[in-house]
Simulated scan of single mutants.
Amino acid sequence: MTFTSTHLVRFAHVDAAGIVFYPRYFEMLNATVEDYFSQEIGVDFAEMHLRRGLGLPTVSIQTTFLSPSKLGDLLDFRLSVLRVGRSSVDLLADVFCGDERRLEATATLVCMDLEAGRSVAWPDDMKPGL
Rank of each mutant, 00 (worst) to 15 (best):
F3G: 06
T4N: 07
T4L: 01
S5A: 13
S5C: 08
S5E: 12
S5V: 00
T6W: 01
T6M: 00
L8I: 11
A12W: 06
H13W: 07
V14L: 03
G18I: 05
G18P: 09
G18M: 11
I19N: 02
V20H: 12
F21G: 06
F26A: 14
F26K: 03
F26C: 12
L29C: 06
L29E: 09
L29D: 05
A31H: 07
A31D: 14
V33D: 02
V33N: 03
D35F: 02
S38G: 09
S38H: 12
Q39E: 10
Q39F: 00
E40I: 03
V43H: 08
V43W: 01
V43Y: 02
V43N: 00
D44N: 14
F45Q: 00
F45S: 01
A46P: 00
A46T: 08
E47K: 12
M48Q: 03
H49E: 04
L50F: 13
G53K: 04
L56F: 11
P57K: 03
T58W: 00
T58V: 11
V59Y: 04
I61S: 15
Q62E: 15
T64K: 07
T64V: 02
F65N: 09
S67L: 00
S69F: 05
S69W: 02
L71T: 04
G72Y: 11
G72M: 09
D73M: 08
L74Q: 12
F77W: 01
R78D: 08
L79T: 04
L79I: 05
V81T: 12
V81H: 09
L82E: 15
V84W: 09
V84M: 14
V84D: 06
V84F: 14
R86K: 06
S87V: 03
S88I: 06
L91N: 03
L92A: 12
L92P: 04
D94K: 13
D94I: 10
V95E: 07
V95K: 04
F96I: 01
F96W: 15
F96S: 12
G98N: 10
D99H: 12
D99M: 10
E104T: 15
A107F: 08
L109M: 11
C111V: 09
D113F: 01
D113A: 04
